[in-house]
Simulated scan of single mutants.
Amino acid sequence: MFRPLPFAASLVLAACSAIVPSTAARLASFDPLTADPAAIELAVILPPGLAVSPGSATLELSADRGAQHRSGTFRLADHAAPGIAVPAGATARGFVIAEADVARMRALQTEIAGWKATGAAKGSLGLGIGGCAIGEGPAPDATGSVLIRVRKNGPFLPLIADGKLVDLLGPEVLAAIKPCQSAG
Rank of each mutant, 00 (worst) to 15 (best):
P6D: 08
S10R: 14
V12T: 14
C16L: 09
C16G: 06
I19L: 12
P21I: 03
A24G: 11
D31A: 07
T34I: 11
A38W: 07
I45T: 11
I45F: 00
P47E: 02
G55K: 08
A57D: 08
T58N: 10
L59C: 11
L59P: 00
L61E: 00
A63T: 00
D64G: 03
Q68N: 05
R70A: 14
T73N: 07
F74A: 04
A81G: 05
P82R: 02
A90D: 15
G94N: 07
F95Q: 01
V96H: 09
A98M: 03
A100T: 13
R106K: 15
A107N: 12
L108E: 09
L108P: 10
I112E: 04
W115Y: 04
K116V: 08
A117P: 03
A117W: 02
T118K: 10
T118E: 12
S124I: 05
G126A: 15
I129Y: 01
C132F: 05
A133D: 01
I134C: 08
G135S: 03
P138F: 08
T143Q: 15
T143K: 14
V146L: 02
K152C: 03
K152V: 11
F156D: 01
F156H: 13
I160Q: 00
A161G: 03
G163D: 04
L165A: 04
L165T: 08
D167F: 14
L168R: 04
G170Y: 06
G170L: 08
P171H: 06
Q181W: 01
Q181C: 03
